[in-house]
Simulated scan of single mutants.
Amino acid sequence: MAHGTSPYKIALVGIGKIARDQHVPALQASPDWELAATVSRSGTVEGVEAHRDFDAFLAARPDIEVISLCLPPQPRFAYARKALLARRHVMLEKPPGQTLAEVQALQRLAAKQGVTLYASWHSRMAAGVAAAKSRLIERVVQGVHITWKEDVRKWHPGQDWVFEPGGMGVMDPGINALSILTEILPEPVHLVSAELEFPENRDTPIAARLDFTGNVGAVFDWRQEGPQSWDIEIETNKGAIALRDGGARLEIDGTPAPLPEHPGEYPALYARMAELVAKGESDVDLAPMIHIADAMTLGRRVTVAPFNF
């Protein structure tokens, strides 16, 4: 998908855990991309040109036309706006911003500048998601139960930003489940009620229960130790379908279903970004984020024990 035979040059901004674990390996394995630079206050990637200041980077490397932002949501809008103003194509980690209005502003700016904006949802690229979606087309969904329980100390060790305003708390992993839900359901649903558990010393929830139209419910919890639970169980008029391990496994009536070979979530995201840049298109689906915003609006707040890393 790159220019003829040469790959697109891309810069990674924010070299933290997700960048090291997912973005860097995906880019280094892809024929579409050349990881040409990084921008981070402290992190670097061996063998890759490193910058600390984003403005200086934009001025110094006009040849790098694609920027992938792996920063926390709070500072991401300012960086994305600068990149779009500099006519760079931009890929956003999930969630694409702190608020819907922020991302809509970026959408308008990308369109005005004639560049690509991609709000990526990595869980939609999990191995079982497309197969589940295709099986639901000819079925009537009678109910969905989402269980998304994990250990925040394992996945966000010491990362206080997740509990600060804009960090979304347990909605940060929960939005992964909602990104799958909004991708696979033949008919959209909307939130009708929610209960959000806030640690008494934190500004974002550590657990949540969400109820939607269509007999759809979700339970998110960041206090799960031991085995982690990322399950979406769907009852239909033709039996049960379940996505396990965050969408990596598909079960039909309790039996594992064979899935085609899969490149991995982040390689699939970067293949999609290359396709969007080549076509001059953007892809910004805010459906998962709308559900989170609705939960924050409709949610009944419950104060629970303080949380410390």
Rank of each mutant, 00 (worst) to 15 (best):
residue 154 K to G: 01
residue 183 E to L: 01
residue 294 D to C: 01
residue 91 M to D: 06
residue 67 I to F: 11
residue 24 V to D: 06
residue 81 R to N: 04
residue 301 R to P: 01
residue 129 V to L: 02
residue 232 I to Q: 02
residue 120 S to F: 09
residue 132 A to M: 10
residue 8 Y to M: 03
residue 53 D to T: 03
residue 225 E to W: 00
residue 226 G to M: 05
residue 126 A to Q: 04
residue 305 A to E: 15
residue 66 V to S: 11
residue 160 D to I: 13
residue 63 D to K: 09
residue 102 E to Q: 15
residue 290 I to H: 13
residue 160 D to Y: 10
residue 237 N to P: 10
residue 8 Y to S: 03
residue 214 G to F: 07
residue 114 G to D: 09
residue 174 G to R: 03
residue 17 K to M: 15
residue 26 A to C: 06
residue 157 P to R: 11
residue 243 L to T: 10
residue 266 Y to G: 04
residue 263 P to F: 04
residue 73 P to F: 05
residue 108 R to E: 14
residue 251 E to G: 03
residue 12 L to D: 02
residue 199 P to L: 03
residue 108 R to C: 02
residue 289 M to Q: 15
residue 43 G to S: 09
residue 5 T to Y: 08
residue 166 G to F: 06
residue 24 V to H: 05
residue 156 H to K: 13
residue 18 I to A: 14
residue 22 Q to S: 15
residue 215 N to D: 11
residue 202 R to Y: 00
residue 169 G to F: 02
residue 264 G to P: 09
residue 64 I to V: 14
residue 180 I to N: 03
residue 288 P to F: 05
residue 90 V to N: 13
residue 222 W to G: 13
residue 141 V to C: 03
residue 25 P to L: 06
residue 308 N to H: 15
residue 9 K to Q: 15
residue 177 A to Q: 10
residue 70 C to D: 12
residue 283 D to W: 01
residue 100 L to D: 02
residue 3 H to N: 13
residue 36 A to Y: 03
residue 4 G to I: 07
residue 265 E to P: 00
residue 220 F to P: 00
residue 209 R to S: 13
residue 159 Q to Y: 12
residue 78 A to R: 10
residue 50 A to E: 11
residue 233 E to H: 13
residue 137 I to R: 15
residue 47 G to F: 09
residue 214 G to Y: 07
residue 149 K to V: 00
residue 46 E to P: 08
